[in-house]
Deep mutational scan, measured.
Amino acid sequence: MAAGGDHGSPDSYRSPLASRYASPEMCFVFSDRYKFRTWRQLWLWLAEAEQTLGLPITDEQIQEMKSNLENIDFKMAAEEEKRLRHDVMAHVHTFGHCCPKAAGIIHLGATSCYVGDNTDLIILRNALDLLLPKLARVISRLADFAKERASLPTLGFTHFQPAQLTTVGKRCCLWIQDLCMDLQNLKRVRDDLRFRGVKGTTGTQASFLQLFEGDDHKVEQLDKMVTEKAGFKRAFIITGQTYTRKVDIEVLSVLASLGASVHKICTDIRLLANLKEMEEPFEKQQIGSSAMPYKRNPMRSERCCSLARHLMTLVMDPLQTASVQWFERTLDDSANRRICLAEAFLTADTILNTLQNISEGLVVYPKVIERRIRQELPFMATENIIMAMVKAGGSRQDCHEKIRVLSQQAASVVKQEGGDNDLIERIQVDAYFSPIHSQLDHLLDPSSFTGRASQQVQRFLEEEVYPLLKPYESVMKVKAELCL
Score class of each variant (00 low, 15 high):
residue 5 G to W: 08
residue 5 G to T: 14
residue 6 D to Q: 04
residue 9 S to W: 11
residue 18 A to N: 08
residue 19 S to T: 00
residue 20 R to W: 06
residue 20 R to Y: 03
residue 20 R to F: 03
residue 25 E to V: 10
residue 29 V to C: 15
residue 38 T to I: 14
residue 43 W to F: 12
residue 44 L to Y: 09
residue 44 L to F: 10
residue 46 L to M: 11
residue 47 A to R: 02
residue 48 E to A: 03
residue 50 E to L: 10
residue 58 T to E: 06
residue 59 D to N: 07
residue 60 E to K: 14
residue 64 E to G: 05
residue 67 S to V: 07
residue 67 S to N: 12
residue 79 E to R: 14
residue 82 K to P: 10
residue 87 D to P: 00
residue 88 V to I: 15
residue 93 H to D: 10
residue 93 H to S: 09
residue 98 C to A: 12
residue 101 K to Y: 02
residue 104 G to Q: 09
residue 108 L to V: 08
residue 109 G to W: 00
residue 110 A to C: 13
residue 112 S to K: 04
residue 117 D to K: 00
residue 118 N to F: 00
residue 124 L to F: 07
residue 127 A to C: 07
residue 128 L to V: 11
residue 131 L to E: 14
residue 132 L to N: 15
residue 134 K to A: 08
residue 135 L to C: 11
residue 144 D to K: 14
residue 148 E to W: 04
residue 149 R to F: 14
residue 149 R to K: 09
residue 163 A to G: 09
residue 165 L to D: 00
residue 165 L to R: 03
residue 166 T to C: 10
residue 169 G to F: 00
residue 170 K to P: 06
residue 176 I to P: 02
residue 184 Q to K: 14
residue 188 R to F: 15
residue 194 R to V: 12
residue 195 F to K: 02
residue 196 R to Q: 10
residue 196 R to E: 09
residue 202 T to K: 00
residue 202 T to D: 10
residue 205 Q to F: 05
residue 205 Q to L: 06
residue 209 L to V: 12
residue 213 E to Q: 14
residue 214 G to N: 10
residue 214 G to S: 11
residue 217 H to L: 06
residue 220 E to I: 15
residue 229 K to S: 14
residue 231 G to M: 09
residue 234 R to W: 08
residue 252 L to H: 13
residue 252 L to V: 11
residue 253 S to E: 04
residue 254 V to E: 08
residue 254 V to Y: 15
residue 255 L to V: 08
residue 255 L to Q: 11
residue 257 S to M: 09
residue 258 L to Y: 09
residue 268 D to H: 13
residue 273 A to Y: 01
residue 275 L to D: 09
residue 277 E to I: 03
residue 281 P to E: 09
residue 284 K to D: 10
residue 289 S to R: 00
residue 291 A to I: 05
residue 292 M to Q: 00
residue 294 Y to N: 04
residue 295 K to P: 02
residue 296 R to M: 15
residue 296 R to A: 07
residue 302 E to G: 02
residue 313 T to E: 01
residue 319 L to W: 04
residue 321 T to G: 08
residue 324 V to D: 06
residue 324 V to I: 09
residue 324 V to K: 01
residue 329 R to A: 04
residue 330 T to E: 01
residue 331 L to P: 02
residue 333 D to P: 00
residue 334 S to Q: 15
residue 336 N to R: 01
residue 338 R to A: 01
residue 339 I to P: 00
residue 339 I to R: 02
residue 345 F to G: 08
residue 350 T to P: 11
residue 356 Q to K: 07
residue 357 N to S: 12
residue 361 G to F: 05
residue 362 L to T: 07
residue 367 K to Q: 12
residue 371 R to I: 00
residue 373 I to G: 03
residue 374 R to H: 08
residue 375 Q to P: 10
residue 381 A to E: 11
residue 384 N to I: 12
residue 390 V to G: 07
residue 393 G to A: 08
residue 393 G to P: 06
residue 405 V to D: 13
residue 407 S to C: 12
residue 408 Q to C: 04
residue 408 Q to A: 12
residue 412 S to R: 11
residue 412 S to C: 08
residue 415 K to A: 06
residue 416 Q to Y: 14
residue 418 G to I: 08
residue 424 I to E: 09
residue 426 R to T: 05
residue 429 V to K: 04
residue 432 Y to N: 09
residue 437 H to F: 14
residue 439 Q to T: 13
residue 439 Q to A: 15
residue 449 F to C: 03
residue 454 S to W: 06
residue 457 V to P: 05
residue 461 L to G: 07
residue 464 E to A: 11
residue 466 Y to G: 14
residue 471 P to S: 13
residue 474 S to Y: 15
